[in-house]
Design a protein around this nucleic acid. Structure first.
Lengths: 209, 209
DNA sequence: CGAACAGTGGACCTGAAAGTCCAGAGAGCT
DNA sequence: AGCTCTCTGGACTTTCAGGTCCACTGTTCG
């Protein structure tokens, strides 16, 4: 069902062409974030990016290819945002700031749309192998950023030696994703708050005496 | 966008009619479980249930109504299954058996399709208010079943008095849902196992001394 | 029995969405 | 300049899914 497509650029790209391509992708990112993949039509993307059908098909062979580009872009944007905050993580307080930032953003929408890559994962994991593995990679990078912070906390003596940063990081991301889903369903960030609080509470049980 | 539809039966239902209706719904449940709502066409349902277009429209005004019926059925089936196990929950060991049963079933598919109602929630929460609130209700019932078990554990002295059954139940469901999503994305139940282990580990920190 | 209504088959309609095509404008290069 | 390739507009084709219709059969009940 899914071909391993080459990453080689087949045609040269002029500045104008690159700009159009970027406009298309960003419009698709924004629309898909709100409407989901299935409900976003190429005509929606065309209109939102002020382009034409032929430009879409000039830059992407089909919708699936555009969606994959959206996944890559959304994943990169999310990681970039997380990186800013998580590179500095070295305390439980930092973990709480991380939680607060996520919840604040979700609160603005009452939890709607869920997590940018979590929602993509739920919709695409069983329908597009390539997208699935890309998303798996972004989750891994995310976990790794958290794990590095937790490792720093362990090295500095904040956490005990028996704390496992990798496992705790996966746990935190899972708790976050579950929290997102319940929040999205309940139209309230309360369950997300509660879940992240408890998850961080669990990390706290590894605090050095 | 969403009308509060009456639950009153407008037409009499013969045994034959009821059987057809059930066949349609169960076929839709099975298809949607695997393909998702958007990718499941009424023609798929028609074929899988050995019915005709007019039977579909005889029993349901439109696709949205059928989908809501699917949500109700899937929710009820999940709760029924959980009830069997959770009514007896009264120990950490019982919680572990609950975890093991969930993981075993997810392992059969390498995590594919995720949670029966979690996947529906992710796809429908932002697109159908009525479906969203139904799903919220099922999550609540699920949490309540867990909370009752945890309450029993607290009453019998297994858990300390400061354990909060409701909050822990929400936390367990969130951890489970996050675990499902990561498992679905990674094509492996490992993150789901790890997450549920940690979540139960957190409950264990409330064990009475 | 026979009227009234539930249930059924399947052709048909309609709109929307993916994807195709081609003529022509814009850009880069020698 | 003049050639080539990129880029673009938008009409067009195709496909397919949701939904409608109607003639016909089965069932219930007075």
């Amino acid at each position: 069902m899914d071909e391993p497509e080459g990453t080689t650029q087949k045609t040269r790209l002029t500045a104008r062409g690159a700009a159009t391509r970027t406009r298309i992708v960003q419009a698709a990112v924004d629309l898909i974030r709100v409407k989901g993949v299935a409900a976003t039509t190429l005509d929606d993307v065309r209109a939102a990016s002020s382009t034409s059908k032929s430009q879409l098909y000039h830059h992407f062979p089909d919708k699936k290819a555009l969606v994959r580009e959206v996944v890559a872009t959304q994943g990169a944007q999310l990681i970039a945002g997380q990186e800013d905050q998580l590179r500095r993580l070295n305390s439980i307080r930092g973990l709480e700031r991380w939680r607060d930032a996520l919840i604040q953003r979700a609160s603005l929408r009452n939890g709607a749309y869920g997590c940018a890559i979590g929602s993509l994962a739920a919709e695409l994991a069983d329908r597009d192998q390539e997208a699935r593995s890309m998303l798996a990679k972004y989750f891994e990078i995310w976990e790794e950023l958290l794990a590095e912070g937790l490792t720093r906390m362990r090295a500095s003596g904040v956490l005990r030696r028996d704390a496992d940063p990798e496992k705790l990081a996966t746990f935190l991301v899972a708790a976050l994703q579950g929290g997102y889903l319940l929040a999205q369903t309940a139209h309230s960030t309360d369950p997300m708050k509660l879940t992240l609080d408890m998850a961080i509470g669990h990390v706290r049980t590894f605090l050095a005496a």
